[in-house]
Design a protein around this nucleic acid. Structure first.
Length: 408
DNA sequence: TCTGGGGTCCTAGGACCC
DNA sequence: TCTGGGGTCCTAGGACCC
């Protein structure tokens, strides 16, 4: 048997957060729904139903702007925990169809059907593409009937083309791009549709007179290098349908590590104040609370961080970060003084502050053996984490962040 | 379009070492 | 110490994705 072509499926849940909210409250069915928060709050649309998209509402848009377009929509807060449970059920179902899959985000995953044609073939299938197309339709139908969520899928020989196809298939559709047809499929689409081309690259391409993916594909490498730099070759391959099709075996990001044994990934929490603040005690309380949060998550993962980053955004949106290498820690008692000092160093302007964030990176394993004798914190954290497990995260806070919690 | 919050990856200059 | 070049770490910033 000849080696079969790669057949990658990008499975994407339609207006995922909205669909889950409708599943939990069927009276929302058919109504205009926006998930992200209430109008007037500082925040953006995280999911918009097709009814409000028709009015021009898009995810990422500020709630204020959305309200101008859709004053009569139902506005709901984002409930990540709830959506995660449904996402997990969809994953389990999808993973029953193919042994190789990769989770791309909460509402999107890649499935590798390469070589599965014979397994699924039926006499009535015209060819291998028809087989895969039929099977993926079975999958999206099953997600709808068994879980109650609408899903779409794109199938192609590469991940990027499959992803673009899934976008074109929405809502509730399946679109297969046959091998060899990739360039023709992409050619008429606006440049922004291709994964990796964001607002900045779009602007630069427009300035060069390139508005469609076909025009980009035909442009000389030298020209494209001005926009994509080192990415140029990879983008060009992608546009020819020769992009990557490899599907990494399922593995949480924090379990991957490089040859030095460092865990990849980072843990961060950031918060936009409801109103810009200047009050130093309010700022300190927020920093303390953020330190607690990231450290709690680090301990849950069993990692410590060798780098901490403070993020600061002024009221006028000027944003900056300050980072520092530290003795690996997952203790807020150790972290907070460093973060506070980074803040004091970073804040050179008098302006009120809009956002603060704390990130941990350069993660490594938490080696309790190494710490036991020099660290009374370990016992304290163990006790804190146990209580939180039983009574919830908010059961315990350091005094400063408790002050913040009380005020908010 | 007055702009959230969680991430990943890339770039680039300077320090420091050999 | 009138000075090359490569490697790696640290830090800051930015593009992009959902």
């Amino acid at each position: 048997m000849a080696l079969s072509k790669p057949r990658i499926c990008c499975l994407d849940l339609d207006t995922f957060f909205v669909s889950v909210e409708r599943l939990l409250d069927p009276s929302l069915q058919g109504k205009p729904v926006i998930v992200g928060g209430r109008p007037g709050q500082r925040g953006v649309v995280t999911a918009a139903s097709y009814e409000v998209r028709a009015l021009g509402v898009r995810s990422g848009m500020s709630l204020t702007a959305a309200y101008q377009l859709a004053p009569n929509a139902v506005y709901l807060p984002t409930r990540h925990g709830v959506y995660g449970t449904y996402a997990e059920r969809v994953r389990e179902l999808a993973q029953g169809y193919t042994p190789l899959s990769q989770v791309a985000s909460i509402d999107e995953m890649f499935l590798d059907f390469s070589g599965c044609e014979n397994l699924y073939a039926r006499p009535e299938d015209a060819d291998a593409d028809a087989t895969i197309d039929r099977v993926v339709r079975l999958l999206t139908d099953e997600i709808q009937t068994r879980i109650g969520l609408p899903a779409s899928a794109g199938i192609a020989t590469s991940r990027s083309v499959a992803k673009v196809a899934s976008g074109r298939a929405k809502p509730r559709g399946v679109l297969l791009v046959a091998a060899g047809q990739e360039a023709a499929f992409l050619a008429p689409l606006p440049v922004r549709k291709f994964p990796g081309i964001g607002p900045v690259a779009e602007r630069k391409l427009h300035a060069l007179g390139l508005t469609t993916l076909g025009e980009v594909a035909a442009a000389p490498s030298g020209l494209l290098r001005r926009v994509f730099g080192a990415w140029t070759a990879s983008i060009q391959r992608g546009l020819r349908g020769q992009g990557a099709h490899e599907i990494a075996r399922e593995r949480p990001a924090f379990q991957e590590h490089d040859p030095e044994g460092l865990w990849l990934g980072s843990i961060s929490n950031e918060r936009t104040f409801r109103e810009d603040v200047r009050d130093p005690s309010c700022i300190a309380a927020m920093l303390c609370s953020l330190c607690e949060r990231v450290c709690y998550r680090a301990r849950k993962r069993g990692v410590r961080a060798r780098t901490v980053t403070l993020k600061l955004r002024y009221a006028d949106f000027q944003t900056l970060s300050r980072s520092r290498s530290i003795t690996p820690t997952s203790s807020e008692l150790e972290l907070f003084p460093v973060v506070h000092e980074l803040f004091v160093r970073a804040r050179t302007r008098r302006r009120a502050i809009r956002l603060l964030g704390v990130a941990l990176s350069n993660l490594g394993p938490y080696d309790a053996q190494l710490r036991l004798f020099d660290d009374d914190d370990a016992a304290l954290h163990g006790a804190i984490d146990t209580l939180r497990k039983r009574f919830g995260y908010d059961a315990l806070h350091l005094a400063l962040s408790a002050e913040r919690a009380r005020r908010s």
